[in-house]
Each structure stands twice: as C-alpha cells, then as structure tokens.
Design a protein around this nucleic acid. Structure first.
Lengths: 155, 155
DNA sequence: ACTTTTTCGGTACTAAAGTATGATGACAAA
DNA sequence: TTTGTCATCATACTTTAGTACCGAAAAAGT
C-alpha cells in the first residue's frame, strides 16, 4: 500500500527531475551568450529548488497532528453500591453459622423460623444467637440488627 | 515517530537526487571534457536549496490541532436522598404515637426503653406496639422493622 | 491416637415480647 | 348532655427471646 505510493512518488520525482534537467539545459542554452546572467540563473535555480523542496516536503510529510486532550467531566450518579464492610466483619470474628443466623435475624425471622430454615433445633439457634450477641456486644436481636446495619456487615 | 521516517525518506530522495546529478555531471564531464563547472555549481545549488526547502517546510509546517474530547467519568456518591414514602405511610393509618414508637423500635429499643423514653408505662407501649403490629400486619418487632424499612416509611 | 476446636443439642430458668380484655379520663362532635 | 373516639394504664396470660451451664459428636490439628 505505502510501497505503491512511494513508488509512484519516485516515478513522479524522477520525471520532474528529468524535466528540470531539460529546462536547465534550455535556460543555459538560451542565456549562454550573456555571461553575467549567471547570478540570475543561479538565483532562479535556488528559488525554484527551494520551492520544489518545500513542495516535496509538504507532499511527503504526514501532517503534524497535535492532539489536545480536553477532559470533559461527566458526573455519574452511582447507584449506592452496597459493599459489606469486611474489616468490621472480621473484627467481630463471627463464624459462618453465626453470620448466617445474623442475616436471617435481619430479615425478621424468629428463632423457630431460623431453626426450621437451617434444619437445626431451637436450642442450637438460641446458643448461636447468644454467642452472636456476646460477640456483637448487644443484648437483643433488634440491637444486633441495627448494629449490623450500622457497621454495614449485612445488607 | 512518523516525522522521523518521513525525514529519512526526504534524505533518501535528496541523496538519490544528488547522486543522479553527480552521475550526470560525471558522464557529461567525461565525454565532453568541456569547461562546464557552471553545471556542477548549478546542480549543487539545486541540491542545496532543495534540501533547504524541505527543511524550511518541515520547520514551518503548522501542526494541525486536533481537539480530542475525552469524557472523564466522575462518580458521585448520591447521598441516598431518603424520602419517606408518604403514600404507604398513610395507607397504614398509624397515629402519631404508633409512628413514634415504630421509629424507636427500628432503633433497637426495647419496650421498657421506649416507655422510659416517652414517659409512658410499659403497658401502654405494649398496647401501642400490638396495635402497630395489627395495622402493619406483622407479628413481631423485627418483622415490623424490616417491613417499615422495605416500605421506606422510616429511615 | 490424642487433644482441641467447632458445631450441635439439651435442660432449666429469667426476661422480654406479644395477646386479650377491660377500665379510666380527656376531648371533640352530635 | 350524651356519644364516641383515643390515648393511657392495668391485669392476666401465652409465647418468644435470651442466659447459663452442660454434654455429645464431628472436624481439625498435633
């Protein structure tokens, strides 16, 4: 792709070069009689080739693109993404059962409900709940729920 | 980057041009043995000014300023603008006391706490709470709390 | 194989929550 | 004045929650 383009350029420049040489010869022949026309001749050549150089350069040089990055601030309302506070959760050092029960507590389930849900006896739930309260430093399920929500350890 | 590559091309073309001119001159000189120092001089001028033109062009080339607008997302924590669901609240038809008690319930207070807080007897709180449950169609304080939060009638 | 820890379950008891019913006084509407 | 509603309080009772202490089985270290 670029190779073809380059080849075309080369051909073009070759042709231009040829024409220039002939033109040069023609001018030289025409002003041959006048010896002091050399300066004018050289000047013309200089001007012409300078222009040629500029033209070649503009043709060859890919346009300089100066990218100006303008940061447009878009305010996005974040949908309150809930993330459990792992730090606080680990501080409490709850085991999996206790945490499971805490979540069910927060849903408003009674001990009996939880027992049925987890296929455990009411006694077991009671002990788990009591241990949970000790670890959370509360004395009732409602306090446990509110505290858990405050600490963001449950949804 | 690409500029350098282009420059290399230019140099290459310039060299080819120069070599061609010199080759031409050499051939001319060899076969004609004429005093044609003028041609060499003109060729040199041509080559020099071509290169000069190219150089000038690359220097003068104004960079195209391309403005790229980058959208930068800024996440804003929406302050969870809580608004109590007045509609649902009116549906429940709670009186001021019951609603007051509901709010205290949600904070994890016991009946005794609420009684002390509102300067009422435990009995009164119990009746209010019971009536509240009837209106909310629940059977325990935890259910009442979760339902109230679901309906967004309390914070 | 042994300890230790975790998990589960039980008993017994106390405390709190929840239900049912009724009484009292205040206060507004008829 | 009477009526009715409402908030308050009480009694009596049932249910649930919570505490304390203990024991057994399973899992996990050692």
């Amino acid at each position: 792709m670029t190779l073809l383009k380059d080849f075309r350029h080369i051909i073009l420049y070759g042709l231009i070069l040829a024409i220039l040489v002939f033109a040069l010869k023609w001018i030289q022949w025409k002003f041959l009689i006048v010896d002091n026309a050399f300066d004018i001749y050289a000047g013309l050549i200089a001007v012409f080739f300078t222009i040629l150089g500029i033209w070649v350069a503009t043709q060859l040089a890919k346009p300089k693109v100066e990218t100006v990055i303008v940061e447009k601030e878009i305010f996005v309302m974040q949908a309150e993404e809930f993330s459990i506070n792992e730090t606080e959760l680990k501080k409490l050092n709850l085991n999996s059962r206790e945490y499971e029960i805490l979540q069910l507590l927060a849903k408003g389930h009674s001990n009996a409900d939880i027992a049925a849900n987890l296929f455990l006896s009411l006694s077991t739930i009671k002990t788990h709940v009591s241990n949970l309260y000790l670890k959370m430093d509360v004395k009732s399920r409602t306090k446990a729920i509110t505290k858990a929500k405050q600490l963001k350890i449950i949804e």
